[in-house]
């Protein structure tokens, strides 16, 4: 067992503990704190897997803004949970079924860090690492990069000229800029829907709150 494995196991165990504790906590303020800790621990775990962008988003959204929103919500609702803990069997079965399906889905995935995984042999990756790829003619990506360079002389040999140090940004706002454009359009539409539905409705049912 290497050290990274040990760190991963400890982090995941803490994530599970924080998750269960957040569900079981009767005090809602404590539950929010535990949910925030859950997100932060998950962010640490993503960092150990070199997925820093995912970790950043998890920390900013999961541990940051949703915690603040939930604190705003408990100031409106009160701090104690009303206990009603009958087991809802159909819901439990549905959750278990989805969990089994998800685990089954991961069985087809390549091992973590596998050099022969599609993510590491696909032409896109060859494009990203082209400067290094071109120096190593023995690599699998070298041939792909050469092939692409022959087929697309107008890109001066680049598969895709989005070379910036952060590959995730490269994919999100350049290679898949169209996807991101419509993601932005979707959240814009959500805000506009809220404006149309709620703006100016002073006599709303949330009377007697905080803000």
């Amino acid at each position: 067992m290497n050290y990274m494995m040990l760190i991963d196991v400890v982090l995941l165990a803490l994530v599970i503990i924080a998750g269960i504790a957040a569900i079981e906590a009767r005090n809602l303020f404590a539950a929010i704190g535990l949910a925030s800790a859950y997100s932060l621990l998950l962010a640490c775990f993503w960092t150990t897997m070199d997925a820093v962008d995912v970790a950043y988003t998890e920390a900013a959204v999961g541990a940051g803004i949703s915690t603040i929103m939930l604190i705003g919500a408990i100031v409106l609702t009160g701090e104690r949970e009303i206990v009603r803990r009958a087991v809802h069997w159909p819901a439990l079965l549905a959750c278990a079924g989805v969990a089994v399906l998800l685990v089954y889905g991961t069985l087809d995935m390549p091992r973590f860090g596998d050099p022969d995984a599609p993510a590491h042999t696909h032409p896109i990756y060859a494009g990203f690492t082209q400067q290094d790829v071109m120096k190593d003619p023995s690599g699998k990506s070298f041939e792909l990069a050469q092939e692409y360079a022959a087929a697309h002389p107008d890109h001066s040999g680049d598969y895709f000229h989005g070379h910036v140090p952060n590959q995730v940004t490269s994919v999100i706002v350049s290679y898949r800029a169209f996807d991101t454009l419509f993601e932005v359009a979707v959240i814009f539409t959500a805000a506009m829907a809220l404006v149309v539905l709620l703006r100016g409705r002073r006599g709303n049912p949330l009377k007697g709150g905080l803000l």
Partner: peptide, 14 residues
């Protein structure tokens, strides 16, 4: 968008 969500949902609750 985040500010709009906050504004519209908390409007009138103070």
């Amino acid at each position: 968008v985040m500010m709009t969500i906050f504004n519209e949902i908390t409007e009138g609750t103070n």
